[in-house]
């Protein structure tokens, strides 16, 4: 059941990775597109991310990793969402994620995995079309 009003999104960097250029660009683009975005900052654990997502009642979680630890952290977030029965939250991710790692992440529920350089507009429109399918631009 699609909600109405501004889309609420949680952005997070799980693990120890400090590369936050990409996620901060996404943060700004989503806010400029009228979404309500919470960014949890560097070094958050999957537990903290899932807890914040539920407390903040978000519709989507975006994770970023450029340090090669995406599998560990992204999959853990997906597992914990399942155990919290919160699989209605849309998952997406970005960063340096080798092609051969995409499939396991997609089957764990990551609908979109954006490589560096992805046009910001694409991320905005993907979220809008999935979360507010009836609303045209």
């Amino acid at each position: 059941m699609a909600r109405s009003g501004p889309i609420r999104v949680l952005l997070a960097k799980p693990g120890l990775d400090g590369h936050d250029r990409g996620i901060r660009l996404v943060l700004r683009a989503l806010r400029d597109a009228g979404m309500e975005v919470i960014y949890t900052g560097l070094r958050t654990t999957p537990e903290q991310i899932v807890r914040a997502a539920i407390e903040e009642d978000v519709e989507a979680i975006g994770l970023s990793s450029l340090s090669g630890a995406h599998e560990t952290h992204f999959l853990e977030v997906s597992r914990q969402l399942k155990s919290e029965n919160a699989t209605d939250i849309l998952l997406f991710g970005g960063g340096i994620i080798p092609q051969q790692d995409l499939e396991p992440l997609k089957s764990a529920g990551f609908d979109h995995l954006y490589p560096p350089g992805t046009p910001l507009e694409q991320i905005v429109s993907d979220l809008k079309s999935q979360l507010r399918p009836g609303e045209s631009e």
Binding site: G15, L16, R43, S67, G68, A69, T72, H73
Partner: peptide, 22 residues
């Protein structure tokens, strides 16, 4: 690797998934 850079040993919970990666 990031755990070493931030000051965690390879067996610390914070190092999970990050050991030897970068």
């Amino acid at each position: 690797d990031l755990p070493t850079q931030i000051g965690f040993d390879s067996d610390a919970p914070e190092a999970l998934g990050e050991v030897g990666r970068v």
